[in-house]
C-alpha cells in the first residue's frame, strides 16, 4: 500500500493505492493522524487505485472519521471508490458513514 498526501487550501487529499489489510492499515491510520496533527480535519481519500481493503481498513476509516467529525471540525469523504470495494462498504453497512464522489475534483470542491 502507498499513501501520498497533498495539501489544498480547504482540505488534505490522501491518495491510497494498493492493498489495505491488517499489515498496512496502521499506515492509513498514521496518514490520517498526520493531517489531524496539522489541524486538518477535512480529508478526501482518493481510493481510485485501491485494490483491496479488509476490515482492518474499515476500522481505520471508522476511527479516522470519528476523529475528524468531532466538534464538527471536519469529515473524511471518499472519491473514486472502486466497485469491488464499494460492495464491501455495503456489506459492512459503512455506506451511510461516508460521502462518496465519482471524481476527486468534486470531492475536494465539496469543502
Amino acid at each position: 500500500m502507498e499513501i501520498t498526501t497533498q495539501h489544498f487550501k480547504h482540505c488534505d487529499l490522501l491518495t491510497v493505492k494498493g492493498r489495505v489489510d491488517s499489515y498496512t492499515a496502521p499506515k492509513l491510520v498514521e496518514a490520517i493522524e498526520a493531517s489531524n496533527k496539522k489541524d486538518v480535519f477535512k480529508i478526501v481519500l482518493d481510493l481510485g487505485d485501491l485494490e483491496y481493503m479488509s476490515s482492518a481498513g474499515f476500522r481505520a476509516l471508522l476511527v479516522g472519521q470519528r476523529a475528524c467529525k468531532r466538534y464538527n471540525r471536519g469529515e473524511i469523504v471518499l472519491a473514486r471508490v472502486p466497485k469491488k470495494i464499494y460492495e464491501a462498504f455495503e456489506l459492512t453497512g459503512f455506506t451511510p458513514l461516508f460521502k462518496m464522489f465519482d471524481d476527486v475534483t468534486a470531492a475536494v470542491g465539496s469543502f
Binding site: 470519528r66 456489506l91 458513514l97
Partner: peptide, 22 residues
C-alpha cells in the same frame, strides 16, 4: 450492529461478520 451511527459503531467484530457473509 450495522445500523449504529458513527459514535456508537463498534470497531471489533467486523472481520468475523464479513467471514460469515462471504
Amino acid at each position: 450492529d450495522l445500523t449504529c451511527d458513527l459514535e456508537d459503531r463498534r470497531v471489533g467484530g467486523l472481520g468475523v461478520y464479513l467471514m460469515r457473509q462471504l
